[in-house]
């Protein structure tokens, strides 16, 4: 569905060097990305600010011309075949609206039907589905400029889907949304992904989006892919482990060890301890701990993807 082969995008930046002199410098925003994404995949595309996420998405949608390398989406070359490609993809750029500011949401949708030249019946079916899943009805007749950010984003998602695209590109779809709206957007996308006929590529800074939605995670940094695989693979690669956190009646005796684990932290005057599970299951570790000391409360904590990704970003 999507193929990128050694895709690059350079920008020239002029740097001030003295009163009138400007030095030209070339910055590679995307520096040799090769990826293949199959039909129906849901791919999370993450990376720190300025890593090249949006630039990649803009090359895939035909907004930006690649400096070198090859790219094809739905079998089309994005820039020369931009308008043909546009009929087959849906795009939500979190910061750029596709809606008509002064018109009610309903009219924007009607206009898009003409812009995308889709038959009224299919359009109506898809609109009905979005209205149900995204609760659009209460603000369908409100001018877009009066919508809240969460409402507008739900409108943007609908706008991107009304022509039945094969690929959906989402650039930070949950940015700036409150918890409830984020949930609404995520469940909607999850629902969309379940049917399996839409390929979804999404960039985000919110890793919860990825955990909820994407099987596959592509991490990009300085314009290069630094990880491509499942979230589990990322954890395995960086040796992230589950850990056991226990609240104790009394601090641990000196020199205490629990087989197959490492004691990683002792807080609250020795009353709270954390063990990383290296080679034993949580059950074995819990049994071992309870047998040795008086435990008031305990919990098993899953590895935090935020930490893993933060490590990935700083490790340069």
């Amino acid at each position: 569905m999507i193929k990128m082969q050694d895709l690059k995008k350079d920008f020239t930046v002029r740097v001030k060097a003295g009163r009138f002199r400007r030095l030209k410098r070339t910055v590679a925003a995307v520096d040799g990305v090769s990826l293949t994404i199959e039909r129906g995949e849901m791919v999370g595309y993450i990376g720190p600010n300025g890593a090249g996420k949006s630039t990649t998405l803009k090359m895939l949608t035909g907004v930006l011309t690649p400096s070198s390398g090859e790219v094809s989406v739905c079998g089309l070359t994005p820039v020369p075949q931009r308008t043909r490609l546009a009929l087959r993809i849906g795009v939500v750029f979190g910061q750029r609206s596709q809606l008509w500011w002064d018109l009610p949401l309903r009219e924007s949708f009607e206009l898009l039907r003409h812009v995308y030249r889709v038959p009224a019946a299919g359009h109506a079916t898809r609109l009905r589905r979005c209205r149900d899943l995204l609760d659009l009805d209460e603000f369908l007749d409100t001018p877009v400029r009066q919508l809240s950010l969460g409402q507008r984003m739900r409108g943007e998602l609908t706008a991107a889907l009304l022509h039945g695209p094969e690929v959906l590109f989402l650039d930070e779809p949950t940015i700036g949304l409150d918890v409830v709206s984020k949930q609404a957007v995520r469940s909607f996308l999850a629902e969309l992904g379940r049917t399996g006929d839409v390929t979804l590529v999404l960039t985000t800074h919110d890793l919860a989006d990825i955990e909820r939605l994407c099987e596959r995670l592509v991490v990009i940094d300085h314009g290069r892919v630094v990880h491509d695989g499942s979230i589990e693979a990322l954890h395995a690669r960086y040796g992230s482990r589950r850990s056991l956190v226990a609240d104790l009646d009394r601090p641990l005796p000196d020199g205490f060890t629990l087989d197959g684990t490492t004691l990683t932290s002792v807080t609250a005057n020795g009353h709270r301890v954390t063990f990383t599970l290296d080679s034993v299951t949580a059950g074995v570790a819990v049994a071992g701990l309870v047998a040795a000391v008086a435990v008031r409360d305990l919990s098993v904590v899953e590895p935090d993807i935020e930490d893993v990704v933060a490590r990935l970003y700083t490790e340069r």
Binding site: T83, R96, V115, R117
Partner: peptide, 13 residues
Amino acid sequence: AGTLDAVLVRPLP
């Protein structure tokens, strides 16, 4: 402002 993006992703010149 970069808002030309929104125009370029529509199926019209």
